[in-house]
Every structure is written in structure tokens, then in C-alpha cells.
Write a protein that binds this DNA or RNA. Structure first.
Length: 529
DNA sequence: TTGTGTTTTATTGCCTCC
DNA sequence: GGAGGCAATAAAACACAA
């Protein structure tokens, strides 16, 4: 009965799709396109042809998709630039050109956007460590994969590296930190394209300097409150961290304000300078959801999608919709920057698909709500355990249709393949803390951006999404619904009992809003209650 | 359920380059 | 002139709040 109806609906759908003016690409198709796009923003005709054939699309469709995809990148970049322009004006700070604003991942040379790299060059280099375009830098969200593969991975979110620039206080150049993910065994940086290096590995200048000064007060406040002794050359994000020396987080410095500050600044996420920035307007699109879905959801989704590659069924559609709904909720819990496995460019490249995980990261950051701290927490803490499993599952996935089958079964294996991952014990409170802090760095940007563009509605949605995360244990879900500190949820899931208090304490301090006024601090704690 | 806003897809025209 | 790309536009699909 059901079977026949399903078949019937399938036929209907097929016929219906023929009549549709416009067909949505299947998740697999989109995934394949995205994957390819992240590798080649300007595919050759041959590439397009192959891709089209592989995905069951026409070359025209593929070309059009790429074109729109580039436009999308560009548009988003522009939006982000505008937002930051406003931000800068509002803060009386001149925007830092070196941050990559106005550059186009599409590489439309006629617009003169590329100041440093030819778009074609960008494409050609996309997989070879040097191809981080300004848009790549600015569009972590879409191009995480590229960045990952290219060794210039965005740290935490789709929020761009240039945003990171903004987020990094004076003297804390993210690019001084970033490369350590790709450090060679002797901690040497991998070779960079000179041009790119010139462009990207800039020292804080102009805006950044001022920004740093502005933020310095907030940082100072945090340092005072934390009273910790940060490692100047602290471990980098998602890198195989060295265990902090004993007492590293103790107050050893009489003047914590001026002590080295090597880890991500926990204060930044709520920095008042950042908050006005609009969030990324839904950088992660609907199909982002699919990535997560494919990678980590119910096993039969694999088959569903491949089956729908060349025409699905109502059943599949419903599955997709349902999955979208649930995944959209779930994905907000995923963090991208907890991928120790993506530490090295080599590893990144091998894994082939960092994209999905990158997308997860974008979603992850999107959960940031108007009430930043809250969203930030849920995003940063409660999913730690899941991050490693689920995101790596995605990461290991070949996004192309024929590659899906293995997705769910290789994640842990590959995670283990990355020594960095297994060296990241869950009990490593401090390590986790570092990642959390880092991830939070990009969050407020996104939060602000999305807020500006979509308003509270979006934020509310994100809030809801976070609550609805399906992959979380029930108790955590319940806890979230009751607005329990997500950190505690994470503790429930991950942290040994003995470490919970310690972590919580660290966390609660580290999450102080950057303004660090007592009022805001109070608000923060209130929101967590 | 419906209205509204957002995102994605398709089309078309123009521009640049070879 | 053709190919490829970008930009603008329309419309479908979708998400979400009321």
C-alpha cells in the first residue's frame, strides 16, 4: 500500500519536476557543485562538462550555478564589507584595506577587485596552499574548504579572516596564529605565495592597530578578570596543543594586563565594536543543511540522496524536508573549529572535503543569537563531543554522490588518523577552552551581521534551532530548552565530573562580554540563568 | 493556513578577452 | 564574432512568524 503510493508519488514527482520551471538541485548535486566550486571557482568547460555529467546536470546548469555561486560570494562579500564599513565608521575607525574587503572571490577582474591575485590564478592555486583569495579569506563560510585545503583555513566561522583581523587585538595577528595549524614538524610555516603572503600575513595596521587599541581595553578587562597567564606563543586553534605548563592559567603575573596574551580573546565575541556588524546573511544556504544531514544523520539518508540525484521521490522530498528542518536545527550545534584533524594542510587536503565541516561551522556560528553569550555558549560548548564525530564524518565525506556511502563509517577512523584529534582528549579542559574561545571569536561577527540583515527573527530562529538540536542527548536538549548553560550541557556530555567546576569557572570568566562592565557581566550571567 | 521575507534557479543583456 | 563572465531581473522554492 505504502509502497505503491510511494511509487506513485515518485512518478508524480518525476513528471512534476519535468514541468517545473525551476528545479532545485538535489543535495547531492549541490554538494558536488559546492565541492567543486571550492576547488575551482572558474572551472573549465571540460570540468563543467564532467561535473554536469557526474551530477546529472546540464553544462548550462553547471555554468549558471557557478556563475551565481560566484555572484553570491561576491554579494556576500559586499554585504560584509558594507557592514564592516558601517562598523568602522561607527567606531570612528578607518577600515583596513588589507583586510581584503571588496575583493571578489569570483575574481571579476573588470571590477578591479583583486588587488593581489588574478582570479584565474586564484582558481588554479585553489588547491595548492596559495589560493586563498580575499574572498576566501573573507568568506570562510563558503570557502572554508578551499581555505582548509589551501592551508589558510579560517579559524572559526564563515566570518572572514579579515573579520578576524578585526577581532584580533593589536599585536595578535591571526595569521601569525593560523599557520601553526599547518606547521611543519619544525613549526615552520608552509610556503606561501609571496603575493598572498604579502597580502595576508600583514601585521596589524591602520584599522587593526586602532582596533586593537580599542579592544585593548576590553582585553585588559578580561585579563584582569581572568588573571591568567597566557602563553604568548600559545597553541593554535585546532592544533595539537601542547599541554599547558603547570600553572599556566594561574595568576603568575603581577600585572596580568600586560602579560602575553596568546590565546583567543574570550572577550572579543561580544565586543561592542563588533556587535554592530551585521551577520552574514545566511551564508550557509539551505543546502548547507544537507551536508550535515548527509554526514551525520540517519543512515538511510545516504541512499535517499543518491537516489534522488537523477530524480527523487516525494518520499525523498519529504525526507529531505524533514531532514532540513531537523538538521537546520542540529547544525547550529556543530562547530567547525574543533577540528583538530584539520590541523595540517596535508591532512586537510587528504580529507578532500573540508567543506561540509566548514559549513557546519558556519551554521555553528549562526546560532549566535541576539543574546550573544547564550548562543555562543550553546554553540561553543555543548557540542564538543559531537563536533569531533559528526564534523569529521562530514569532513571525510566525499561530497560527490558516489562518495557518500562511506561517510558515516570513516569519521572516527579518520579522526584517529589525525594524531591531533586523538591527542585532544576530552578531558583536556584547557585545550577545549582554547578552541572554544577561538570559535567564539568569529561568532559575534556573524551574529551581528545576521542580526542586521535579518533582525531578531533570524536570531530567534537560531535560538530555536539550537534548542532543537536533534543529535544532542535528550538530557542536553532538555537542558537547552530550559536555558541551562550549554557549557554545563557539554560538561554533561564530555567532561569528567572532577573537571566540570574548573571548566565552568574558566568558561564563565572567559565569556565575559568585551565591554566587561559589571552590568554586562551581570546580564551575561543572568542570561545563563 | 497564510502572508512575508529569503534563497535559489533561470534568463537575458552587456562587457571583456582572444 | 564567439566564449566566458558579470549583473540585473523574475520567479519558484523555501522558511518562518502570526
Amino acid at each position: 500500500m505504502e509502497e505503491s503510493s510511494e511509487m506513485h508519488s515518485e512518478e508524480n514527482k518525476v513528471s512534476a519536476e519535468k514541468n517545473k520551471k525551476r528545479k532545485l538541485k538535489t543535495p547531492a548535486q549541490v554538494a558536488g557543485l559546492e565541492k567543486f566550486y571550492n576547488e575551482h571557482k572558474y572551472p573549465t568547460e571540460e570540468m563543467k562538462s564532467e561535473l554536469a555529467e557526474e551530477l546529472g546536470l546540464t553544462e548550462k546548469q553547471v555554468s549558471g550555478w557557478f556563475c551565481h555561486r560566484r555572484l553570491k560570494d561576491k554579494r556576500l562579500l559586499k554585504d560584509e564589507a558594507l557592514a564592516n564599513g558601517r562598523q568602522d565608521r561607527s567606531s570612528g575607525v578607518i577600515q583596513d584595506r588589507g583586510s581584503g574587503l571588496g575583493q571578489d572571490s569570483c575574481g571579476s577582474s573588470k571590477h578591479g577587485d583583486y588587488k593581489y591575485m588574478d582570479p584565474k590564478e586564484v582558481e588554479s592555486q585553489g588547491l595548492h596552499n596559495n589560493g586563498f583569495t580575499a574572498a576566501d579569506m573573507a568568506y570562510g563560510h563558503r570557502n572554508h574548504y578551499t581555505e582548509n585545503a589551501s592551508g589558510m583555513e579560517d579559524t572559526s566561522s564563515e566570518s572572514s579572516s579579515y573579520l578576524q583581523d578585526r577581532l584580533f587585538p593589536q599585536g595578535q595577528d591571526p595569521y601569525d596564529m593560523e599557520p601553526s595549524r599547518y606547521l611543519t614538524p619544525n613549526r615552520a610555516l608552509p610556503p606561501l605565495n609571496p603575493k598572498s603572503a604579502t597580502n595576508m600575513r600583514h601585521k596589524p595596521s591602520g584599522y587593526l592597530k586602532v582596533k586593537g587599541e580599542i579592544e585593548n581595553a576590553a582585553i585588559t578587562a578580561v585579563k584582569k578578570q581572568l588573571g591568567r597567564n597566557y602563553l604568548e606563543d600559545g597553541p593554535l586553534l585546532s592544533v595539537e596543543f601542547d599541554l599547558p605548563p603547570p600553572g599556566a592559567f594561574d595568576c603568575q603575573n603581577a600585572d596580568p594586563v600586560h602579560e602575553p596574551y596568546g590565546v583567543a580573546n574570550p572577550a572579543l565575541p561580544n565586543s561592542p565594536e563588533i556587535s554592530p556588524v551585521k551577520r552574514q546573511p545566511s551564508l550557509s544556504s539551505r543546502y548547507d543543511s544537507y551536508y550535515t544531514k548527509f554526514s551525520s544523520q540517519d543512515p538511510h539518508m545516504e541512499g535517499v540522496d543518491f537516489g534522488s540525484l537523477h530524480g527523487g521521490s516525494d518520499f525523498q522530498d519529504k525526507q529531505d524536508k524533514k531532514a532540513r528542518q531537523s538538521i537546520k536545527q542540529r547544525q547550529t550545534f556543530y562547530g567547525a573549529n574543533h577540528f583538530p584533524g584539520r590541523n595540517s594542510s596535508l591532512d586537510l587536503y587528504e580529507d578532500d572535503v573540508g567543506e561540509a565541516s566548514a559549513y557546519n561551522s558556519t551554521k555553528n556560528h549562526r546560532i549566535g543569537t541576539v543574546h550573544g553569550v547564550e548562543g555562543m555558549r550553546s554553540d561553543s560548548t555543548s557540542n564538543y563531543g559531537d563536533h569531533y564525530e559528526e564534523n569529521f564524518a562530514v569532513k571525510q565525506t566525499d561530497m560527490l554522490p558516489h562518495g557518500y556511502d562511506n561517510n558515516h563509517h570513516i569519521n572516527l577512523k579518520n579522526v584517529q588518523r589525525s594524531g591531533n584529534v586523538k591527542s585532544m582528549p576530552l578531558s583536556s579542559v584547557r585545550n577545549s577552552q582554547i578552541s572554544v574561545d577561538t570559535e567564539e571569536r568569529g561568532l559575534p561577527i556573524r551574529m551581528a551581521k545576521e542580526e542586521m540583515f535579518k533582525g531578531n527573527r533570524k536570531a530567534k530562529k537560531q535560538h530555536r534551532d539550537a534548542d532543537g538540536a536533534m543529535m544532542l542527548p535528550k538530557e542536553i536538549m532538555d537542558a537547552k530548552r530550559t536555558k541551562v548553560d550549554p557549557l554545563q550541557q557539554y560538561h554533561l556530555k564530555q567532561a569528567p565530573v572532577g573537571e566540570m567546576d574548573q571548566r565552568k569557572n574558566q568558561r564563565s570568566v572567559g565569556e565575559m562580554p568585551s565591554s566587561f562592565s559589571e552590568d554586562e557581566t551581570a546580564d551575561t550571567s543572568t542570561s545563563l540563568d
